[in-house]
Simulated scan of single mutants.
Amino acid sequence: MELVDLIKSRRSIGVVDEKEVSDEIIKELLETAVWAPNHKKTEPWKFRVIKGDGRIKLGKEMARIMKEKTADLTEEEAQKKIEKAEKGPLRAPVIIIMAVSPSGIVPEIEEIVATGCAMQNLLLSATEKGLATIVRTGDIAHYPELKPFLKLDENDKVIGLIYIGYPKKEFDIKGIRTPVEDKTIWFD
Protein backbone atom coordinates (compact mmCIF):
# COMPACT_ATOMS: atom_id res chain seq x y z
CA MET A 1 0.00 0.00 0.00
CA GLU A 2 1.29 3.45 -0.86
CA LEU A 3 2.08 5.64 2.16
CA VAL A 4 -0.55 8.25 1.27
CA ASP A 5 -3.21 5.52 1.01
CA LEU A 6 -2.14 4.06 4.35
CA ILE A 7 -2.40 7.50 5.99
CA LYS A 8 -5.84 8.11 4.47
CA SER A 9 -7.16 4.66 5.39
CA ARG A 10 -6.15 4.57 9.08
CA ARG A 11 -9.17 4.80 11.38
CA SER A 12 -9.81 4.57 15.10
CA ILE A 13 -11.42 1.20 15.67
CA GLY A 14 -12.20 0.04 19.18
CA VAL A 15 -14.12 -3.15 18.41
CA VAL A 16 -11.47 -5.85 18.60
CA ASP A 17 -11.17 -9.58 19.06
CA GLU A 18 -9.48 -11.04 22.14
CA LYS A 19 -6.98 -12.84 19.88
CA GLU A 20 -3.48 -12.24 21.22
CA VAL A 21 -1.13 -9.89 19.41
CA SER A 22 2.34 -11.44 19.41
CA ASP A 23 5.24 -9.86 21.26
CA GLU A 24 7.12 -9.84 17.96
CA ILE A 25 4.47 -7.63 16.35
CA ILE A 26 4.36 -5.35 19.40
CA LYS A 27 8.14 -4.95 19.22
CA GLU A 28 7.88 -4.09 15.51
CA LEU A 29 5.31 -1.39 16.30
CA LEU A 30 7.55 0.06 19.00
CA GLU A 31 10.55 -0.04 16.67
CA THR A 32 8.71 2.06 14.09
CA ALA A 33 7.65 4.50 16.80
CA VAL A 34 11.21 5.32 17.88
CA TRP A 35 12.11 6.48 14.39
CA ALA A 36 10.04 9.64 14.81
CA PRO A 37 11.87 12.92 14.26
CA ASN A 38 12.87 14.80 17.39
CA HIS A 39 14.86 17.98 17.88
CA LYS A 40 18.35 17.41 19.31
CA LYS A 41 17.66 13.65 19.31
CA THR A 42 16.17 13.77 22.81
CA GLU A 43 13.92 10.73 22.16
CA PRO A 44 11.35 11.95 24.72
CA TRP A 45 8.95 9.00 24.46
CA LYS A 46 8.32 6.21 26.92
CA PHE A 47 6.23 3.10 26.29
CA ARG A 48 4.40 0.88 28.75
CA VAL A 49 3.07 -2.36 27.23
CA ILE A 50 0.10 -3.80 29.10
CA LYS A 51 -1.24 -7.24 28.16
CA GLY A 52 -2.58 -10.40 29.74
CA ASP A 53 -3.12 -10.10 33.50
CA GLY A 54 -1.39 -6.71 33.38
CA ARG A 55 -4.68 -5.33 32.02
CA ILE A 56 -6.52 -6.57 35.12
CA LYS A 57 -3.87 -5.05 37.40
CA LEU A 58 -4.06 -1.73 35.54
CA GLY A 59 -7.86 -1.79 35.82
CA LYS A 60 -7.70 -2.39 39.57
CA GLU A 61 -5.24 0.48 39.99
CA MET A 62 -7.38 2.79 37.88
CA ALA A 63 -10.46 1.81 39.93
CA ARG A 64 -8.56 2.51 43.17
CA ILE A 65 -7.61 5.98 41.93
CA MET A 66 -11.12 6.65 40.64
CA LYS A 67 -12.58 5.69 44.02
CA GLU A 68 -10.48 8.46 45.62
CA LYS A 69 -11.43 10.96 42.90
CA THR A 70 -15.18 10.31 43.15
CA ALA A 71 -15.61 10.61 46.91
CA ASP A 72 -17.77 13.74 46.46
CA LEU A 73 -20.22 12.06 44.05
CA THR A 74 -23.30 10.06 44.89
CA GLU A 75 -22.61 6.38 45.50
CA GLU A 76 -24.29 5.45 42.22
CA GLU A 77 -22.34 8.01 40.13
CA ALA A 78 -19.08 7.03 41.80
CA GLN A 79 -19.69 3.32 41.25
CA LYS A 80 -20.30 3.84 37.52
CA LYS A 81 -17.01 5.71 37.12
CA ILE A 82 -15.10 3.17 39.21
CA GLU A 83 -16.48 0.23 37.20
CA LYS A 84 -15.73 1.98 33.91
CA ALA A 85 -12.14 2.63 35.02
CA GLU A 86 -11.68 -1.00 36.04
CA LYS A 87 -13.13 -2.45 32.83
CA GLY A 88 -11.41 0.00 30.47
CA PRO A 89 -8.13 -1.90 30.11
CA LEU A 90 -10.03 -5.03 29.07
CA ARG A 91 -11.19 -3.42 25.79
CA ALA A 92 -8.27 -4.88 23.83
CA PRO A 93 -5.64 -7.58 24.24
CA VAL A 94 -2.82 -5.01 24.22
CA ILE A 95 -2.50 -1.46 25.46
CA ILE A 96 0.58 0.59 24.74
CA ILE A 97 0.67 3.61 27.00
CA MET A 98 2.75 6.40 25.53
CA ALA A 99 4.21 9.12 27.68
CA VAL A 100 6.42 12.08 27.00
CA SER A 101 9.41 12.65 29.23
CA PRO A 102 10.53 16.25 28.75
CA SER A 103 14.32 16.55 28.66
CA GLY A 104 14.58 20.26 29.41
CA ILE A 105 16.95 20.52 26.43
CA VAL A 106 14.29 21.79 24.02
CA PRO A 107 10.88 23.39 24.65
CA GLU A 108 8.40 20.87 26.06
CA ILE A 109 5.97 21.43 23.19
CA GLU A 110 8.61 20.08 20.78
CA GLU A 111 8.94 16.92 22.89
CA ILE A 112 5.16 16.47 22.97
CA VAL A 113 4.97 16.86 19.18
CA ALA A 114 7.84 14.38 18.72
CA THR A 115 6.01 11.85 20.89
CA GLY A 116 2.89 12.46 18.81
CA CYS A 117 4.96 11.66 15.71
CA ALA A 118 6.10 8.43 17.39
CA MET A 119 2.46 7.60 18.08
CA GLN A 120 1.51 8.22 14.45
CA ASN A 121 4.34 5.93 13.30
CA LEU A 122 3.02 3.21 15.59
CA LEU A 123 -0.59 3.67 14.49
CA LEU A 124 0.28 3.55 10.80
CA SER A 125 2.45 0.49 11.31
CA ALA A 126 -0.40 -1.25 13.14
CA THR A 127 -2.80 -0.43 10.30
CA GLU A 128 -0.35 -1.83 7.78
CA LYS A 129 -0.29 -5.09 9.78
CA GLY A 130 -4.09 -5.37 9.77
CA LEU A 131 -4.51 -4.35 13.41
CA ALA A 132 -7.23 -2.11 14.79
CA THR A 133 -6.20 0.75 17.08
CA ILE A 134 -7.85 3.48 19.06
CA VAL A 135 -6.19 6.08 21.26
CA ARG A 136 -7.91 7.04 24.48
CA THR A 137 -7.10 9.13 27.52
CA GLY A 138 -9.78 10.42 29.84
CA ASP A 139 -9.06 12.15 33.12
CA ILE A 140 -7.55 9.03 34.66
CA ALA A 141 -4.64 9.10 32.19
CA HIS A 142 -3.58 12.49 33.51
CA TYR A 143 -3.90 11.81 37.23
CA PRO A 144 -0.46 11.89 38.86
CA GLU A 145 -1.54 8.98 41.10
CA LEU A 146 -1.24 6.65 38.08
CA LYS A 147 2.43 7.46 37.45
CA PRO A 148 3.92 5.21 40.16
CA PHE A 149 2.03 2.18 38.83
CA LEU A 150 3.32 2.93 35.31
CA LYS A 151 6.84 3.62 36.63
CA LEU A 152 6.75 7.12 35.18
CA ASP A 153 8.68 10.09 36.55
CA GLU A 154 6.91 13.04 38.13
CA ASN A 155 7.40 15.27 35.06
CA ASP A 156 6.31 12.61 32.56
CA LYS A 157 2.92 13.05 30.90
CA VAL A 158 0.73 10.32 29.46
CA ILE A 159 -0.30 11.33 25.96
CA GLY A 160 -2.36 8.29 25.08
CA LEU A 161 -3.44 4.75 25.78
CA ILE A 162 -3.32 2.92 22.47
CA TYR A 163 -5.68 -0.06 22.46
CA ILE A 164 -4.53 -2.65 19.93
CA GLY A 165 -6.11 -5.82 18.60
CA TYR A 166 -7.41 -7.58 15.55
CA PRO A 167 -10.68 -6.08 14.27
CA LYS A 168 -13.79 -8.15 14.98
CA LYS A 169 -15.13 -7.40 11.52
CA GLU A 170 -14.32 -5.48 8.37
CA PHE A 171 -14.86 -1.76 8.69
CA ASP A 172 -15.38 0.65 5.83
CA ILE A 173 -15.35 3.97 7.61
CA LYS A 174 -15.19 6.86 5.18
CA GLY A 175 -12.78 9.62 6.07
CA ILE A 176 -13.82 13.20 5.54
CA ARG A 177 -11.49 16.16 5.84
CA THR A 178 -11.85 19.88 5.33
CA PRO A 179 -10.16 20.78 2.02
CA VAL A 180 -6.57 21.79 2.63
CA GLU A 181 -7.27 25.09 0.84
CA ASP A 182 -9.62 26.04 3.68
CA LYS A 183 -6.82 25.58 6.22
CA THR A 184 -3.92 27.12 4.32
CA ILE A 185 -2.64 30.62 3.68
CA TRP A 186 0.25 30.99 1.27
CA PHE A 187 2.81 33.76 1.60
CA ASP A 188 4.83 34.43 -1.57
Rank of each mutant, 00 (worst) to 15 (best):
K27T: 13
K87Q: 07
G160P: 05
I26S: 15
P93H: 09
I7A: 12
G116C: 02
E83R: 07
P179Y: 10
E77M: 11
P144T: 12
E128V: 00
K84L: 10
V106W: 09
E108H: 08
C117Y: 08
E86Y: 11
A92S: 08
E110Q: 14
M1T: 15
I7G: 05
I97H: 08
P93Y: 07
G160K: 02
V15S: 10
P179R: 15
I173D: 10
T127D: 00
G59M: 05
S12G: 12
I95S: 00
P179S: 14
E110K: 11
I96D: 04
E145W: 02
E77W: 06
S22P: 08
Y163A: 08
I164Y: 02
I65M: 05
F47H: 04
E2A: 14
D156N: 04
I140A: 07
L152N: 00
V158T: 14
E128R: 05
D53Y: 07
L123E: 02
I65K: 08
R48S: 11
T115N: 04
Y143C: 02
F47V: 00
Y166D: 13
V180E: 12
T184V: 13
P44A: 01
S103A: 13
M1C: 13
V15I: 13
F149I: 02
K60N: 01
L161K: 09
G54N: 02
G165S: 11
V135L: 10
R136E: 02
W35I: 04
P93M: 08
I173N: 12
E28H: 03
E31S: 14
L30H: 07
T178L: 15
V113H: 06
K46V: 09
G130L: 01
K60E: 05
G59E: 02
I112Y: 14
K174A: 15
E68T: 03
T70Q: 04
M119R: 05
